[in-house]
Design a protein around this nucleic acid. Structure first.
Lengths: 368, 368
DNA sequence: GTGAAAGCGCTAACAG
DNA sequence: CTGTTAGCGCTTTCAC
């Protein structure tokens, strides 16, 4: 570029040395001002800021990263889907990352992608990030095989065991089983003899945790553990499962691993003549925005995405900025069961198995 | 950096010069190999690759960016919500960006954020990106005011007029009005005298476009243009609107600006004793995954997010890599009306059933 | 409080 | 085909 007359901000971008010249200080002083370093007189600071403003100066991040060895960015491995859970989590993460002054780099793990998380993490490392957030190492096998998943930046793993080896590995949001437990216990408390489970795809940790929470609750109460029906998170798969479940008379309560499947399930049940909640109670998971407005309004478990993201990232940033220091302790996010109208005590019919249906009704928390 | 505590023996990350030494070549040759430049003998290439592998070498992107002036990354301004549309679009964008060899940087525009897109774009520019994708300049006023929104990289604006001044501005996905037209015409074709519109928040271009498409269609057919009810995309707002609309007997068809609102609307209508679709037809927008499984299954317009993202990004990347060249021509994505069971011909004309027939235009705001 | 010098690790011309 | 010589724009020493 030649001939840039500097008017109207044409030609090349101004550098700190240009600002320095205009402000009549050294380039280093400009650097000090922009890094909020001490030992700069108010007057000089003002002059520098003014010059920068006038020139439309913007720090060059590549140079900064090169010189300092820190990119000031955090990478997140997403799931490549618009599913409510993952999308909400991503948004939560973005918010916090930006608040903490970092930039966000995003890479998808697509289902079926042979590279899986390993590839995603690798790509993030290539880009250069100071920390990594992973939420679902979907393809566990591939991950385990890949020895190159040795990461040298702190990692925050949300809701799953860590798929990587890193200097610092933090975990958060692994309370899904507790949430599943709450849902199952609520249904049991309503008087249902047992609870069926419409599970998510078992390649997802989130799905496995929910199943585990459900199963252990049933076991703890000495109840039958019915056969699990597995869906793929979609309402369509919930619908398919519902047609199956509608055949069996002993199904009076179903805990679905997410709301979409619950909605499909309710539809199938309804079409088959099983009323919800009179004949069958249904509990979902996520509390998606429409959950309160479908028919019947869905009882569901709300996941505290924002809280999890915020809590986890606080610890990740701490680990990044204080290498060597002890990691901050995790804190558990709250569990929220939102009771609406898709749940009720079981119907009176058939042989009662352990007492009357109305007994434990008051034992559980009542609606919001 | 130099005084780093010897961590597990492997100390600092290997640089290209280390690889060069090990492979017995010059540093420049390593650079050649990693950039897939021609004029490197197969033998040398092999040796370099091997040495790199052995050392666990990874190119330093900051240095690359600094030296080349390109960051090889694209920034996207998201909406900070898990709404189906924005989330789907983001995922589509990620996919394509990665496929084209770029990295993705993400920044939110939060509603109510005074900085709005301007702030988000600015933050992206600070980070250093070669191109920017914006989908909804929500806060138009702030954007207009902010003169600093002069961007020096190509910009792709999806579904909205450009809020920035840039060397290259591309647009994509601005077919919302056409889609709205299709929906409205379908309803008219069913025999409805007119169609009501449950609009999205008018700060969104997507919402305005849909409204425009609806309005012009009605006008073109010489029909009444009823007063618009505006929601906020949520099912809750659709529900509120539904209670209003249920009062008016002349409402026989409603085109909702998204599926969530349509679902809330249907619920309110149903609760008020207006059957869908026998009494009132409802068309949604988006074709969210549960749309086919709510009661009744929703007739809706499907947005081709992936196609729009792919098409737009192809042009953006072209503009980035061929500055000065003519931009590629846009191509229109297809419109898809998915007909399900929430629409039907209007009920036979009758005398007012519920004693209120003059309210539709004047009394809508009288509710709580 | 401030400045001068020395790189960070790579790519960009040119030489050979 | 391969190597040399310069920077890219900043942050770091360390000197004043």
């Amino acid at each position: 570029m030649t001939g840039g007359t500097g008017r109207g901000g044409s030609s090349a971008a101004p550098r700190s040395v240009d600002v320095a010249r205009l402000a009549g200080v050294s380039q280093k002083t400009v650097s000090r001002v922009f890094n909020d370093e001490p030992y700069v007189s108010a007057e000089v600071r003002r002059r520098v800021l003014e010059a920068a403003e006038q020139l439309g100066y913007r720090r060059n991040n590549a140079a900064r990263a090169l010189a300092s060895g820190r990119t000031r960015s955090i990478g997140v491995v997403t799931l490549g889907t618009a599913l409510y859970g993952p999308a909400s989590l991503l948004m939560g993460v973005e918010r916090v990352v930006r608040d903490t002054g970092y930039a966000l780099r995003v890479v998808n793990t697509m289902e079926g992608d042979p590279a899986g998380v390993a590839g995603a993490v690798d790509s993030l490392l290539d880009q250069g990030v100071d920390g990594i957030v992973i939420s679902e190492p979907i393809d566990e096998e591939a991950t385990r095989r890949d020895a190159s998943l040795r990461v040298d930046v702190p990692v925050l793993v949300i809701g799953a065991p860590s798929p990587v080896t890193a200097p610092t590995v933090l975990t958060a949001g692994d309370g899904a089983d507790l949430m599943a437990r709450t849902a199952t216990e609520y249904l049991l408390g309503l008087g249902h003899a047992t609870v069926h489970h419409l599970a998510g795809p078992q390649r997802w940790y989130a799905a496995r945790d929910r199943l585990e929470g459900w199963r252990t609750t049933l076991a703890a109460h000495g109840r039958d553990v019915p056969r699990v029906v597995e869906g793929d998170w979609s309402a369509a798969s919930g619908y398919a499962a519902g047609r199956e479940l509608a055949e069996a008379d002993d199904v009076t309560a179903v805990f679905a691993a997410n709301d979409d499947m619950a909605i499909g399930l309710v539809r199938a049940l309804t079409e088959a003549g099983r009323r919800v909640p009179e004949d069958v109670s249904v509990v979902g998971f996520d509390d998606i925005p429409v959950a309160a407005f479908v028919t019947p309004p869905l009882t569901t478990v709300r996941q505290p995405f924002d809280a999890v993201a915020q809590e986890g990232l606080k610890r990740l940033v701490h680990a990044i900025e204080n290498p060597g220091a002890d990691p901050l302790p995790p804190s558990d996010p709250p569990v929220d069961l939102i009771v609406r109208s898709s749940t009720a005590p079981p119907p009176p019919r058939t042989t009662p198995r352990r007492g009357r249906r109305t007994v434990s009704r008051s034992a559980e928390r009542s609606g919001p």
